[in-house]
Computed example of a mutant assay.
Amino acid sequence: MSVLSSVRALLPEITGAADDVDRTGSVDPLVIERLHDAGYFALLQPPAYGGLDADPDEYLTATRELSSACMSTGWLAGWLAVNNWGLSVRDERVLQEIWGADPRTLLCSSYAPTGRLERVDGGFRLTGRWTRCTGARHASWLSVAGLLVGSDGAAQDFLAVLLPASDYTVVSTWNGLGLRGIGADDVVVTGALVPEHRVFSWLDTVFDPEVPALQRLPQPTLYTLAGTIPILGAAQRLLELRRTRDDRPLSRVAMARSDVELSLRQISRNVAAQVECVVAGGYPDAELMLRTRRDQVMASDRGWRAVGVIADDPRSGVDETLLERIRRDVETARMHVASNVDQVLSVVGRHAVGLDVDDLIW
């Protein structure tokens, strides 16, 4: 049985539990275990540690369908799964530390550079607090960003840091209007000693030619889509409930459905183009990267608007409790930095007229 088929077999159970997830503010750890059993978290994991080296489209489709069943579950699972991706470019020692004893180990993350690193004997000293670390209580490793600060106090580099649970504390802070089950709590690190092999520069990444192609995709691609695909899944759930009487070509519902389908096609096209590029040994250029980012952020906006179309006219027997929950979930999801339309389109616009852009925002 394929991973996608195994995930689909879980959807009735996940759909049935969605109200409880919203009420209790948590996804049952047994659901995470069943997703492990289905192979979902292995989709983007490094092949050397049990990963499947799957096509990104399989991850995106599975995440979208999970989110259609329960957006909290889809968002939580999607972020925990994407945090397994891209680590093949890291030092082999840290990969062994994470997955050597347990290939099911999960990571939570936050890439706001709110940590401070200082060089010390044996590596670095890290202190910081990171907000909204989705799934922090389901994970036993943390991936965060920090600024390397010199003796003069000036920032020298932008670094990614990996830490085991023994080096950080999870502080219960998540109380979102929607996505109530994602456990996006704060994580605090106080003076943790981090060895050199767990710290990596994002400004000077070099890819080993032996790293699988999937693991060499540009970092923003899957991370930004992890914040968009759940919105599209939730929108599709509501649009399906209105299919029977709102298929007139010019109805608002039919147009919203077309917008969501267009977004999914654009995402699929752009990711396939990036995969083709890295498989051939290249790296996506600015044109492809910015087109990908533009279409991704517009997909978030279209999904949000599609949910609004149903919410504005919730006839045809749409369950009010379901509609209210999805509306809250989507409103919360679109606040994620990955869905900042104005910010992204301003970068795309500057590139279109020949101005330099900061590639870290892609």
Rank of each mutant, 00 (worst) to 15 (best):
S316F: 13
T169H: 12
E92F: 01
R242L: 11
G308N: 04
R252P: 04
A213D: 10
P164C: 12
A145V: 01
T228R: 05
A42D: 14
T114V: 07
V149R: 12
I326R: 06
R237S: 09
D55R: 04
I229H: 03
E320G: 05
L10I: 10
R137T: 14
L106M: 11
A38F: 09
V21K: 04
A254T: 09
S339K: 00
T73V: 15
L159W: 02
T61S: 12
V297F: 02
S72Q: 11
D208S: 14
V337A: 13
T221F: 02
I267C: 02
W75T: 15
W141R: 07
P195L: 10
G308C: 03
G86T: 05
A48I: 06
V318D: 07
V89D: 11
V3Y: 05
T228K: 06
S172D: 15
G317H: 09
V120D: 01
F200Q: 08
L222S: 04
V211D: 05
A299D: 00
M298L: 15
W85E: 09
W141A: 08
V271G: 03
L43V: 11
R291I: 00
S268M: 00
N83G: 09
Y223H: 13
V297G: 04
Y168E: 03
V253L: 07
L159K: 12
L80K: 07
D204L: 06
R8F: 02
Y59R: 08
W75L: 00
V89N: 10
S201V: 11
S26A: 15
V161M: 01
W362K: 07
Y283P: 05
F207H: 14
T114N: 14
D356Y: 02
P284F: 04
R23L: 12
A160H: 13
V211H: 07
V278D: 04
W75F: 15
L232V: 08
E92K: 13
L162E: 14
I182F: 06
V144E: 02
I326E: 06
V337H: 12
R305Q: 15
A18H: 09
A136R: 04
T127M: 09
R34H: 13
P314I: 11
R129T: 15
R291N: 07
V194D: 07
A38S: 14
V309C: 02
R328P: 02
G281E: 10
P218A: 11
A256R: 05
L222K: 00
I229A: 05
F200M: 10
V144F: 08
F207N: 06
A226C: 08
A184S: 15
L250E: 15
V353T: 13
Y223E: 08
E331L: 00
S151I: 11
D329S: 05
P220C: 02
D342T: 14
W99Q: 10
L345D: 03
Y59T: 03
A139T: 12
V82C: 00
R34K: 15
A273G: 03
P12R: 04
L66W: 00
V353P: 01
P314W: 06
R180H: 08
A62Q: 01
R132L: 11
D57T: 11
A299P: 03
V3T: 14
V211A: 05
V344L: 01
G122M: 06
G178K: 12
Q45W: 00
R242V: 07
